[in-house]
Design a protein around this nucleic acid. Structure first.
Lengths: 246, 246
DNA sequence: GATTGACAGATTGTCTGATAATCAGTTTAT
DNA sequence: ATAAACTGATTATCAGACAATCTGTCAATC
């Protein structure tokens, strides 16, 4: 019981398969090709497959992904708008680089917005939201103990997602998502630094605790503190490994 | 003493002109066609030429602008990423609509970010920045007195631009620009409301004053207050003229 | 030897035409 | 009346073409 749709590209290679999930939900079959390209590239950049400063040549992407230039170019425009790639006229796009100063600014704004999100969550979040958040914290702690990197990343994302949802503000979510994407460019989970992880867990617990107690200001402070600490570690690392090109 | 480059579109209409400025600087001849389409459409939407909810049909845009589908489609992707248009797969883009709740959220985040920008400006802005800001305030007041709508809009934009620059934070600028673009969708300059304009001028003066005195917290409060007031008027108007579709 | 200018290759920017997929509305058949 | 089939419009995507622009190389000039 599945649908599939194949494109007979010249190279004989590329095709897409959309599987119907076992439950009643149809897998987002809609997702237009262009969107999949976007997601693939975003992932590739986030995972370091393409590194900051690296050129992204149209033709290569087309071959690599098995899609036409139209789809690739449109996807690139999207990523460009998101700020994770930068393109110069007639030179094509490169994965965005980020200077030390920009990274600092990025974390500053993130702290501001995430603090706000935390406060809103504490004041307006539903009981359901809070329960979800607590579950995310538990999973995060477990993931931290497990030592499995991918699980940790998933848990962290789940936590932030929940936090943004709880803020009940679409724009906070959008802006924060954008910032998160760009922070990924740093290719440095501050959590890979020794000792940071334990602190991180503790900080996150404080956030959840403040929210559970409906203490808005405290939640904001906890969020801000969490980001500030992460920023400190990340920026310190950046300074040492001075990765300044351009 | 000018260069010009014409594209003989089918309709005979469209062309681009690049003028060489009187000084040694060549006018940004670069601006790729796609970018010009973006700007044109953004303007058209901001000025109400296309109204929220209105469909944007590819072919029509091509004819209207005299460019190929490639350029139009890529420009649309950009605008979509910016949030000022929304597109559904296989149905094409429409100018984004914004609900009352979203508008409220929008203003909330804007107040937060603009308050932050004001604070940063007060604490980190250069003397030059402050001078520019003061000039912008003067022009704004003059524009308010002149009663010329377009001049008022320009002055307002100049002021906000200056404010964002003074914050010395690229991300604040980017995020705020994005929010401003979306607020334009409301097609309601809160300043068109009777009596609002005078208040607006007063509020802006307070912002500039606080910044001049290097009083960060006061600047933040003044910015926040300014946006909150604008929000109040705008939301009130929205509630009355309940423009809820979708 | 350093600067300038011309040339070639690579890549992007843009247009055009074609085909398949999808949506929305209308007509037809049960 | 409901469901099925048809139709027209529009989008999604590909392929191929050509002009514009960038980059590096190499010869010509001072």
């Amino acid at each position: 019981m599945y649908l599939w749709y194949a494109r007979g590209g010249a190279g004989g290679g590329p095709f897409l398969v959309m599987v119907m999930e076992s439950d009643l939900q149809i897998a987002k079959q809609s997702a237009t090709l262009r969107v999949k390209v976007e997601e693939t590239l975003r992932q590739a950049i986030a995972k370091g497959r393409f590194k900051p400063g690296q050129r992204l040549v149209e033709r290569e992407l087309c071959e690599m992904l098995g899609v036409g230039r139209t789809s690739v170019r449109e996807a690139l425009r999207q990523l460009e708008a998101e700020g994770i790639i930068t393109s110069f006229p007639h030179k094509g796009p490169v994965v965005s680089t980020i200077t030390y100063e920009e990274a600092a600014q990025l974390y500053t704004v993130r702290a501001l917005l995430e603090g706000f999100a935390g406060q809103q969550f504490a004041e307006n979040g539903t009981a359901q939201d809070i329960a979800t958040l607590q579950a995310a914290v538990v999973e995060f702690e477990a993931a931290a103990g497990s030592g499995v990197g991918s699980r940790l990343i998933d848990a962290k994302n789940a936590f932030y997602n929940c936090l943004m949802d709880g803020s009940k503000n679409v724009f906070v979510r959008q802006l924060l998502t954008s910032l998160h994407n760009r922070i990924n460019l740093l290719r440095m989970t501050s959590m890979t630094q020794p000792g940071r992880l334990a602190h991180s867990v503790a900080e996150i617990k404080e956030i959840a605790e403040a929210i559970k107690n409906r203490n808005g200001p405290l939640a904001a402070a906890a969020c801000k503190h969490h980001i500030d600490q992460a920023a400190k570690v990340a920026l310190e690392y950046l300074r040492k490994n001075a990765v300044n090109e351009s």
